[in-house]
Amino acid sequence: MAKLSNSSTYNQVVEVTRKYLGPAAERFINRQVSNHLKKNPKQLTKADLASLIDWIKVIVSLITEDTSIVEEYISELSKLSMPKSQKGKANP
C-alpha cells in the first residue's frame, strides 16, 4: 500500500509538471529526484516533496523569468503535500 501511494506521488508530480514542461516533464522530474534527492524517482514520497519543490523552484527560475508561472507551478506542487482535508479548505 505504501508503495502504491509512493508511485502515486511521483505520478501526481509528473502530471502537475506536464502542465508547464509538456513532454519534458517526466525527464525533468526524474532528473531532479535522481540528482538532488539521490533516490529512485518512482520511490518519491510526500515527505520528499518539500525538498523537491525547493529544488524545482530554483531550477525553473533559471528557465523562465516569468515569476508568476514559477509561483503557480510551485503552488500546484505544494498542494500535493497537503492532506486531503486541507486541500478541500484551500479550494472551496
Binding site: 508547464y20 514542461l21 509538456g22 513532454p23
Partner: peptide, 9 residues
C-alpha cells in the same frame, strides 16, 4: 499544439 506552458513558449 504542444503542451506545457514553458515548453511551448
Amino acid at each position: 499544439h504542444s503542451s506545457g506552458i514553458l515548453y511551448k513558449k
